[in-house]
Simulated scan of single mutants.
Amino acid sequence: MQLGFVDTLVVFLSLGISLLIVVPLTGVLVRFRANYNPKALQLDAEGGAAPHTGPVVNSYFSMMARVWRIEGIAGLYKGLMPTTISTVFVTIVILIFLDTPKPRHGAYKAPDTRFLATFAYSVGMMLISLPTAVLTYRSITTPHRLGYFNLMKSLRVLLTSTERQKPWIIYLTPGLLAAETLHIALVTCILNPLRRVLLPTITPQLDITEISLWKAAVYFVIVACATIALAPLEVIATRLAIQRNHASTDYDAVAQEPESEGDGIPEYSGTDEDVIGLRHEGDPYTGLVDCAKNIVNEEGVMALYRAWWVTLLGGLGSAFV
Rank of each mutant, 00 (worst) to 15 (best):
A40S: 15
I73F: 13
F61P: 00
G79F: 04
P55L: 05
M64G: 03
A65K: 14
V57S: 00
V67P: 00
G27E: 11
M63L: 06
E71D: 11
E71K: 10
G79Y: 00
P55D: 03
V57W: 00
G75S: 04
Y60I: 06
K39Y: 05
K78F: 02
Y77R: 13
A50V: 10
V57P: 00
P55Q: 13
G48N: 10
M63D: 03
F32C: 08
L43H: 14
L43S: 14
I70Q: 04
G48F: 05
I70E: 00
N37L: 09
P55N: 07
L29C: 14
V30R: 14
G72N: 09
M64V: 08
S62E: 07
T53K: 11
F32E: 04
S62I: 04
G75Y: 00
Q42G: 05
E46N: 12
G79I: 07
I73H: 13
A40D: 09
L41Q: 14
N58D: 06
N35E: 05
K78P: 00
A50G: 01
H52Q: 06
M64I: 03
K39H: 13
G75R: 01
R69A: 12
A49I: 11
I73D: 04
V28N: 13
M63F: 07
N58I: 09
G54Q: 02
M63C: 03
S59H: 15
G54L: 01
P51L: 07
P51M: 06
A34H: 06
V67N: 02
F32V: 13
G72S: 14
P38C: 14
I73P: 01
R31Y: 09
G27A: 11
Y77S: 09
A74L: 10
R66P: 00
G27W: 11
E46L: 03
A49Y: 08
S62N: 09
A65L: 12
E71T: 12
M64S: 11
A40T: 14
L43C: 08
T26R: 15
V28Y: 11
A40W: 08
F61S: 12
W68E: 03
Y60M: 01
R31I: 10
S62W: 01
M64P: 00
L76Q: 03
Y77N: 08
P38I: 13
L41F: 06
L43I: 09
G75M: 02
A34K: 09
T53W: 04
K39V: 10
E46K: 15
W68V: 12
A49E: 05
A40I: 14
H52C: 05
K39F: 08
G48Y: 08
Y36T: 13
V67W: 01
K78V: 03
T53C: 06
I73M: 08
A34F: 07
P38Q: 15
G72V: 07
G54N: 07
S59A: 13
H52A: 09
R69H: 12
P51F: 08
N37H: 13
T26N: 15
S62C: 08
A65R: 15
A34D: 07
K78G: 00
L76E: 02
P55I: 06
F61L: 12
V28K: 12
V57D: 00
E46Q: 15
V30T: 15
W68P: 00
V67D: 01
V56R: 10
V57M: 02
H52G: 02
L43Q: 09
V57A: 00
Y36E: 04
K39C: 07
G47V: 04
D44G: 09
R66V: 02
A49H: 10
K78A: 02
Y60E: 01
